[in-house]
C-alpha cells in the first residue's frame, strides 16, 4: 500500500501531477470536477443539457491547457473553473438568446432513472420548481444564488468568480432569494410544505 493511500490530494496537487505527465491525475480531476462543472453550467443555461455538456468540456479543456503554467497558491482550481464556466455561459446566452425551460422538463438524469418512490418524486419536483424559478432570475442574481446556495462557495470566492465585490455578492444573493421565495411560495403546498 502506498504511504499516502487514503489521503485525498487537493485539486491543485492533482493539477500539478497532471502537468508532470501523470495520467491518473487527469482521471481523478475529471471525476471530481466534471459533475460540478456540468451541474453549474446546466443551471446557468436553464437546463439545456447539450449546451451544458459543450461548456463543461470546453472549461475542462482550458484547465488541461493551463495546467503547465498554473501558479500554485494564487487561486483555487474550482474558483478558476467556475469563473470560466460563468463566462462561457454568458457568451452562449448572449449568442443564442435566453430560452425558457418549462418546469418539469429538466429533471436530472439520476432522478429520471430512479424508481419512483413518493419521496424521490417530491425531491425531483422541488428541484424542478427551483430550477424554473432560478431561470426567471436576472443572470447575475442567478449566478450568485447558485454559487452560494447550491455550489457552496463563500461570498469572497463568489466575488472572485464574478469579478465583483463581496458587498455586491451579498446584495445579489439577497435579492435573488427574495424573488425565489415569492416565486416558490405559490407552489408551497404542492411541494410538500404545509402550514402547522
Amino acid at each position: 500500500m502506498a504511504f499516502d493511500a487514503g489521503l485525498e490530494r487537493s485539486d491543485e496537487a492533482l493539477l500539478a501531477l497532471y502537468a508532470l505527465g501523470d495520467p491518473a491525475a487527469a482521471r481523478d480531476l475529471a471525476a471530481r470536477l466534471l459533475p460540478r462543472t456540468l451541474g453549474y453550467a446546466a443551471r446557468l443555461l436553464n437546463g439545456d443539457r447539450a449546451e451544458a455538456e459543450d461548456v463543461a468540456q470546453e472549461a475542462m479543456l482550458r484547465l488541461w491547457k493551463i495546467a503547465p503554467d498554473w501558479r500554485a497558491g494564487e487561486a483555487k482550481v474550482t474558483t478558476w473553473l467556475y469563473r470560466v464556466v460563468t463566462n462561457l455561459c454568458s457568451d452562449r446566452r448572449r449568442g443564442a438568446g435566453r430560452r425558457a425551460v418549462p418546469m418539469g422538463d429538466d429533471l436530472p438524469d439520476a432522478l429520471d432513472e430512479a424508481p419512483g418512490s413518493e419521496a424521490q418524486m417530491l425531491q425531483a419536483a422541488r428541484v424542478s420548481a427551483l430550477d424554473g424559478a432560478l431561470a426567471d432570475l436576472p443572470d447575475r442574481q442567478r449566478e450568485a444564488v447558485i454559487l452560494r446556495h447550491i455550489e457552496g462557495l463563500t461570498n469572497p470566492e463568489i466575488a472572485l468568480v464574478m469579478g465583483i465585490g463581496v458587498e455586491a455578492v451579498e446584495s445579489l444573493t439577497a435579492r435573488g432569494k427574495r424573488a425565489l421565495t415569492a416565486a416558490l411560495g405559490q407552489k408551497r403546498e404542492a411541494l410538500g410544505y404545509y402550514e402547522d
Binding site: 460540478r36 456540468l38 451541474g39 446546466a42 451544458a52 438524469d109 439520476a110 422541488r126 428541484v127 430550477d131
Partner: peptide, 8 residues
C-alpha cells in the same frame, strides 16, 4: 434537494 440532484 438541488445539491443532491447533480446531473450524472
Amino acid at each position: 434537494a438541488a445539491r443532491e440532484a447533480q446531473p450524472a
